[in-house]
Simulated scan of single mutants.
Amino acid sequence: MAKRLLLTTILNHNAQGLKPVTSLASIYLRKLHTKNVSFEEVTVPVRCGHVAAKLWGGDRNGQPILALHGWQDNAGTWDPLVPLLNVNRPILAIDFPGHGFSSNIPQGVQYYPWELPRFIYFLKKHFKWEKVSLLAHSMGSIASLRFASLFPDEVDFYIAIDSLIADDYDLEAVIERYPTHLRKLELDLDRLGTEPPSYTLEEIAKIWHLGTKMSVSLESTQYLMKRGLRQSKQDPNKYYFSRDARLKHILFTPEDKKFVEGVAKRLVCPTLYVKAIDSPFATDAFSVEMRESLERRNKNFECHFVPGTHHVHLNNPEIIAPLIHDFLQRHNLN
Results as ranks from 00 to 15, higher is better:
Glu292Asp: 08
Met214Gln: 15
Thr212Glu: 13
Lys299Ser: 15
Val274Tyr: 12
Glu255Trp: 09
Thr271Asp: 09
Lys238Trp: 05
Ala321Cys: 15
Glu203Gln: 15
Tyr223Ile: 00
Ala285Ser: 10
Tyr273Met: 11
Leu218Gly: 11
Glu292Met: 04
Lys238Ala: 03
Gln234Trp: 06
Pro307Thr: 00
Asn315His: 06
Leu272Val: 05
Pro307Ser: 02
Ser232Glu: 10
Lys206Cys: 06
Ile319Gln: 02
Phe281Val: 08
Gln231Ser: 11
Asp256Ile: 00
Leu210Ala: 13
His209Pro: 15
Thr283Tyr: 03
Pro322Gly: 02
Ser220Phe: 03
Pro322Lys: 00
Cys303Ala: 05
Leu247Glu: 06
Ala264Pro: 12
Arg291Cys: 14
Asp326Asn: 11
Cys269Met: 11
Lys213Glu: 09
Tyr223Met: 08
Leu229His: 09
Glu261Tyr: 15
Lys299Cys: 13
Pro307Leu: 01
Glu318Ser: 13
Glu219Lys: 10
Leu210Gln: 14
Pro270Lys: 04
Gln222Phe: 02
Ser279Tyr: 13
Thr221Glu: 09
Met214Glu: 12
Phe286Lys: 10
Arg266Glu: 08
Lys226Gln: 14
Glu292Phe: 07
Phe281Pro: 04
Val274Lys: 12
Ser217Val: 09
Ile204Leu: 15
Gln234His: 10
Glu261Gly: 06
Lys299Trp: 04
Gly262Thr: 01
Val306Thr: 01
Ile324Arg: 08
Lys257Met: 09
Arg227Pro: 14
Asp244Arg: 08
Val274Leu: 09
His209Val: 02
Pro254Gly: 07
Glu289Ala: 15
Phe286Thr: 01
Pro254Gln: 00
Asn315Asp: 08
Ala276Gln: 12
Ile320Thr: 02
Pro307Val: 00
Phe286Cys: 05
Asp256Trp: 13
Val306Cys: 03
Leu224Tyr: 07
Lys275Ser: 10
Pro317Ile: 00
Thr221Cys: 05
Gln231Asp: 02
His311Cys: 11
Ser215Thr: 02
Asp284Asn: 15
Leu294Ala: 03
Val216Phe: 03
Gln329Tyr: 13
His311Pro: 14
Glu302Gly: 04
Thr271Phe: 08
Gln329His: 11
Lys206Ser: 09
Ala264Thr: 07
Asp235Arg: 08
Asp278Cys: 11
